[in-house]
Write a protein that binds this DNA or RNA. Structure first.
Lengths: 222, 222
DNA sequence: GGAGGTTCTGAGAGAACTCTGTGAATCCGC
DNA sequence: GCGGATTCACAGAGTTCTCTCAGAACCTCC
């Protein structure tokens, strides 16, 4: 599902917008300040950020720079030509003037996403801020790509396919290693350790050990 | 099983809706006021709240805020555009206008649950505010996950499978411990004690001792 | 109220399990 | 061929779990 980050210092606007977009089928998170937005983007990896031009704590240009490469769509209260030009020069991918209507906003969102990502996300598994693109053989956490070896990738893929379900070391060995592998399951421990170091080295933790049972991949509070 | 909380100040509507949804296979609890609803949600951890927009004691926005992160589906008597927009701006996940038909309501319920939880809740046992997910090997009380060892988990699973029925220590030993276990039933006492400390440390108490008989798991007044 | 059986809970020993560093062997691109 | 990345085994340290034991508290019946 496409994830949006709404940034606006007015709680009313933020909540109205979030609820509306959520109803339109997007996964929406929100932030009240630019600083919060930068943090949230790092943690949650939104596909697009909707950003109020006038934020108290940071100017638009700086925010856009820090959010790169996540695309940004500016929301601006005024509709003068000067503002439009300035909005674009700030590096935004598009802008919408308030008050806007929902159809227009959604159309703009989809247009930006089409331009920047090319494709809707098929074959992409996500668990919390972690995304695994099976076709592209790429893993990102919070938007930044991770370097990962083939075996690590297969293991992560298996865990993410079974997110929320505990898988035993024996199951992992059977599915992730070649059938003629004849070592024992301790190799799984080792690779879980590698994976944790690469993809799960800060909160929220996604790979959980279930003592005596196996491992489970899970984002908190779901 | 999926648990719904129906909130409506009219007893007729409340009971009709509860009965209908119960018949459709949901676990339904209900409340007449917003205050009651907030309490019930804290105690019983419903997966979704069906909330009448017009409640006498609290406005919708406030209720939604207090229920977070439990998803809310609004029920509204009017069907004007103004109301729809207001419903969404209140932060609800969806709304349904009365009178609605059952199929539509159920479809909306399932859609919201799919959006918010990501997974249909199969194989999840619940007793009062306690939920046990066999596949994910996870236990939550009132939504927050609990740390639980394998034997504790098997014991809890057995008790919850037999909720409302008294099981003897001998039965427990036979079902929860390995067949070659050769200690006596006092180990069951010990583990019941562990479980109580972890999952039943505050009211309402769910694990009850039946002196001379065994133990029974039961939520009060359900 | 007392006796006798039953239940509760804390302490601790030992077993089982998990984590991670080290290092050897192998693979792969340049 | 060389250097770096990857795969895998192994072992010690650390953590978690299981189970026993024993005294205190409790319940039931007389």
């Amino acid at each position: 599902m496409t994830r949006l980050l709404v940034v606006d210092d007015e709680a009313t606007v933020r909540e109205l917008l979030s609820a509306t977009l959520r109803f339109a089928g997007f996964d929406v998170i929100s932030a009240a300040t630019a600083a919060e937005a930068v943090d949230a983007a790092a943690e949650e990896a939104p596909d697009l950020v909707l950003l109020d031009v006038m934020l108290p704590d940071m100017d638009g240009f700086e925010v856009v720079r820090r959010l790169r490469p996540t695309p940004v769509l500016f929301l601006t209260a005024r509709d003068g030509q000067a503002d439009k030009i300035q909005g674009l020069s700030l590096g935004a991918d598009d802008y919408v003037t308030k008050p806007f209507d929902l159809e227009e906003l959604i159309a703009r969102i989809r247009a930006v996403l089409r331009r920047t990502t090319g494709r809707p996300s098929d074959g992409v598994l996500t668990v919390g801020p972690l995304a695994l693109d099976a076709e592209g053989h790429q893993v990102t956490r919070g938007g930044s790509p991770l370097r990962i070896s083939p075996t690590e990738f297969r293991l992560l893929h298996y865990l993410m396919e079974n997110a929320g379900r505990v898988v035993s070391k024996a199951q992992i060995l059977e599915r992730v290693w070649r059938y003629d592998f004849n070592g024992d399951t301790s190799i799984v421990d080792t690779y879980i350790s590698y994976l944790r170091r690469k993809v799960d080295d800060h909160d929220p933790k996604l790979i959980h050990t279930v003592h005596g049972m196996g491992y489970v991949m899970r984002a908190p509070t779901s």
